[in-house]
């Protein structure tokens, strides 16, 4: 199939960017979206032009690097996947595709489609860890966790920190990301010890980075490639209230 791409090009963080139109021909429906961009870049390199910069790493849906806003949706039109898992069979010949970077004040564009997601790392550094010494590896099942709690914690632990929640939220809120981390660590016996300190520190850092607030539109839940639910945001709210008031 032949496609027309409208791609955001920006030299660096300080330069103003703009959309540039590219034509790609002979795209196979078996290709992933990133492979289609690889072909475009090969064409650009052959013509001695600057290839389009985009983030990618694992190409199997677990690293969270491929942060592209495709046709108005984070990670494109399909639910529950990253861009590397988006295949060209979901597009048709002659389509126009708009490709933009994540847009949020805390995520400055570094080049073309690559944004700086360091704010998410700084939120993790503020409290997304367990500092209590739990000793060396011990026998299995010495710390008992009931099945439902383990499952709920694991659901939250699926977060890959891609930032699709921030990108798709109309307020550029990082609430689902923070909720996933607080919910993942705070439900387990090892993480429970620091739950109050953790939630207060992570929320304080989240606010400091300039993310917006949550207005419960659920856009994040719909666009999260790991389909993390906003029930975790409700838990984050409870944890915050508990740590602040109780």
């Amino acid at each position: 199939m032949n496609l027309t791409l409208h791609i955001w090009r920006q030299k660096d963080a300080r330069t103003k960017g703009k959309f540039v139109i590219y034509k790609v021909e002979n795209v196979h429906e078996e290709m992933s979206f990133l492979e289609m961009l690889d072909i475009l870049n090969e064409q650009l390199i052959a013509k001695n032009e600057d290839p389009v910069a985009f983030d990618h790493d694992c190409r199997e849906g677990i690293c969270g690097c491929c942060s592209l806003y495709i046709n108005g949706r984070a990670h494109g039109p399909k639910r529950g996947i990253t861009v590397c898992q988006l295949h060209m069979r979901h597009f048709k010949d002659g389509d126009s595709i708009w490709i933009e970077p994540w847009r949020a004040r805390p995520f400055p564009v570094l080049k073309d489609l690559i944004v700086d997601r360091a704010p998410l790392d700084r939120i993790m550094q503020a409290g997304g860890y367990i500092s209590a010494r739990i000793g060396s590896a011990q026998d299995a099942n010495t710390i008992l966790i009931d099945h439902d709690t383990a499952e709920s914690s694991m659901d939250a632990a699926a977060c890959i920190g891609c930032g699709a929640c921030v990108a798709s939220c109309k307020n550029a809120s990082a609430m689902l990301f923070v909720a996933a981390k607080v919910s993942h660590l705070g439900q387990l016996p090892q993480g429970k010890l620091e739950r109050e300190k953790r939630v207060l520190a992570m929320i304080a850092q989240m606010d400091k980075e300039g993310f917006g607030g949550c207005t419960n539109t659920k856009a994040c839940e719909a666009e999260c490639p790991k389909e993390i639910k906003i029930t975790h945001i409700a838990r984050l709210n409870r944890e915050f209230l508990r740590a602040s008031v109780v």
Partner: peptide, 15 residues
């Protein structure tokens, strides 16, 4: 929190 918006944004698809 979002000074530069999207050129194309399909918000109806998720909220």
């Amino acid at each position: 929190a979002r000074p530069v918006g999207y050129a194309k944004n399909d918000a109806a698809a998720n909220s």
